[in-house]
Amino acid sequence: MSDEKSITVDVVSDVVCPWCFIGQKRLDKTIAAATDVEVHIRWRPFQLDPTIPPEGKDRREYLVAKFGSDERIREIHARIEPLGEAEGINFAFAAIKVAPNTLDAHRVIRWAGAAGEVVQNRLVRRLFQLNFEEGANLGDHVVLINAAREAGMDASVVETLLPTDADVEAVRTEIATASRMGITGVPCFLLEGRYAVMGTQDADTLSDAIRQVAAAKARGELEKAN
Rank of each mutant, 00 (worst) to 15 (best):
W43T: 11
W43S: 15
W43V: 11
R44P: 05
R44L: 06
P45F: 07
P45Y: 03
F46E: 14
F46W: 15
F46M: 14
F46L: 05
F46Q: 11
F46N: 06
Q47R: 15
L48V: 09
L48I: 12
D49L: 08
D49R: 14
D49E: 10
P50V: 04
P50R: 07
T51G: 09
I52S: 11
I52Q: 11
I52V: 07
P53Q: 03
P53H: 07
P53L: 06
P53N: 15
P53Y: 09
P54Y: 12
P54V: 13
P54S: 14
P54H: 10
P54C: 10
E55H: 14
E55P: 15
E55Q: 14
G56Q: 11
G56T: 11
K57F: 06
K57S: 14
K57R: 08
K57I: 12
K57M: 10
D58W: 06
D58E: 06
D58Y: 06
R59E: 13
R59L: 12
R59W: 13
R60W: 08
R60S: 14
R60P: 09
R60K: 13
R60F: 07
R60D: 11
R60A: 14
R60T: 13
E61F: 03
E61W: 07
Y62H: 15
L63S: 14
V64L: 11
V64Q: 09
V64A: 04
V64S: 03
A65E: 15
A65M: 03
A65H: 06
A65W: 05
A65N: 10
K66W: 10
F67T: 01
F67G: 02
F67E: 04
G68Y: 02
G68N: 04
S69E: 09
D70C: 07
E71P: 14
E71L: 07
E71G: 13
E71V: 01
E71A: 10
I73C: 03
I73P: 02
I73V: 14
R74N: 13
E75L: 01
E75Q: 10
I76D: 00
I76V: 08
I76N: 01
I76L: 01
H77A: 08
A78N: 13
A78K: 00
R79M: 01
R79G: 00
I80C: 10
I80R: 03
I80E: 04
E81L: 08
E81S: 12
E81A: 13
E81T: 12
P82V: 02
P82Q: 05
P82M: 05
L83C: 08
L83R: 06
L83W: 08
G84P: 14
G84K: 02
E85D: 08
E85K: 11
A86Y: 07
A86M: 08
A86V: 04
A86D: 08
G88K: 01
G88R: 00
G88Y: 00
I89K: 08
I89F: 09
I89Y: 08
I89W: 09
N90Y: 07
N90M: 08
F91Y: 09
